[in-house]
């Protein structure tokens, strides 16, 4: 016995140490051009056992973070048979907050007494585990999880969701300080994942919504656009959605900046890549009713100018015909 845990412990610690230091190995073992978004993890995992360990650790942290936000109350999705049986999730049993958090289809892993066939064992389980009935379901302040996002991205710098969701949580502090910290956090992520569409989009989105700085946002969106074009053939569905967002926001930003040609170019490029995207179709055709008044005015001016131009052209054509 003496040797077994010793060996296991040693192996674990070695793997742990090596996993944490594996950043240095990435340049050697990763493909020359890391792919965008979540693919980075997958590629690394297949290339490196150490990377796998690191990825697993950060994934585990991700799950634990979710658990902490529910103060330890473990939730699970409803099964199909439970849905068919009319069972309701956490969100539907509480008034407003839970619905907002979209937990209609989850229940507590430890069932409530009326759903639990275990009798006394179930009572003991509920008494000793962090269990709350669905009607008492609540959430901890997500800001408590900020250090965990820092930790998981420290352990696995290619864990894109850690960077993006972490920045969103940091930005819950709506002061300038909060915004700056969120941007700083995303920039750290960008340094590790320079071609990540998700991180670039999140940065752009933060500049748009918090700082109203469309110029800087466009710089990030343009970088994101380069990634989207570069990896267009290998994007997964969720990444395609991210790439679609690039063109939507680029279109809107250029419109509000009054750069019509660039807007049309971006929207057209987006439509060529994602011809079924309804938002891009609308952008190509009419002014969206979002963003600033200035944007609206700019669009109206463009439309009027275009209409004038069209009228003038029609008149000229008619004149020529005559």
């Amino acid at each position: 016995m003496a040797n077994v845990p010793l060996v296991v412990g040693f192996a674990c610690s070695l793997a742990l140490a090596a996993g944490w230091n594996a950043t240095n190995l990435r340049t050697v073992i990763d493909p020359p051009h890391p792919v965008a978004g979540l693919d980075v993890n997958d590629t690394s995992a297949s290339a490196s056992l150490l990377g796998q360990f690191r990825t697993n650790t950060s994934s585990w942290l991700w799950l634990r973070t979710d658990l902490y936000l529910h103060n330890g109350v473990e939730l699970r999705p409803l099964t199909n048979s439970e849905k068919r049986a009319g069972m309701q999730g956490v969100g539907t049993s509480e008034k407003d907050l839970s619905k907002a958090l979209n937990e209609d289809s989850v229940v507590t892993s430890i069932p409530s007494p009326h759903r639990d066939f275990r009798g006394w064992f179930g009572d003991l389980d509920r008494a000793t585990a962090p269990y709350k009935a669905m009607k008492n379901h609540s959430h901890n302040n997500p800001e408590q999880a900020i250090p965990l996002f820092r930790l998981m991205t420290w352990i696995d710098p290619n864990f894109i969701e850690g960077w993006t969701v972490g920045s969103t949580v940091i930005a819950r502090d709506r002061s300038n300080n909060g915004t700056e910290k969120a941007i700083q956090f995303l920039n750290e992520g960008l340094k590790q994942n320079p071609e990540s569409i998700s991180i670039l989009n999140e940065l752009a989105f933060t500049y748009i919504t918090r700082k109203k700085d469309l110029h800087t946002a466009v710089q990030y969106l343009e970088l994101s656009r380069v990634s989207a074009v570069k990896y267009r053939g290998t994007l997964r569905d969720d990444e395609k959605e991210e790439a679609t967002q690039v063109y939507r926001w680029l279109g809107l930003c250029y419109r509000d900046l009054g750069e019509r040609e660039k807007m049309i170019q971006a929207v057209q490029e987006g439509r060529s890549m994602f011809p079924d995207d309804a938002v891009l179709a609308i952008l190509a055709d009419q002014p969206p009713r979002i963003l600033t008044d200035k944007g609206q005015a700019a669009w109206e001016k463009l439309r009027t100018d275009a209409a004038k131009g069209k009228t003038a052209q029609t008149e000229a054509d008619a004149h020529n015909l005559n």
């Binding site: 064992f121 000793t128 585990a129």
Partner: peptide, 29 residues
Amino acid sequence: YKLIAAALPQLGVFDLGGRAANIGWSPVS
């Protein structure tokens, strides 16, 4: 199912780690 659940060791009930780690959970009675 009931028999299996009763026969299996309910080791989870001896682990208050979840309550001890998370915030605001009181000791069990």
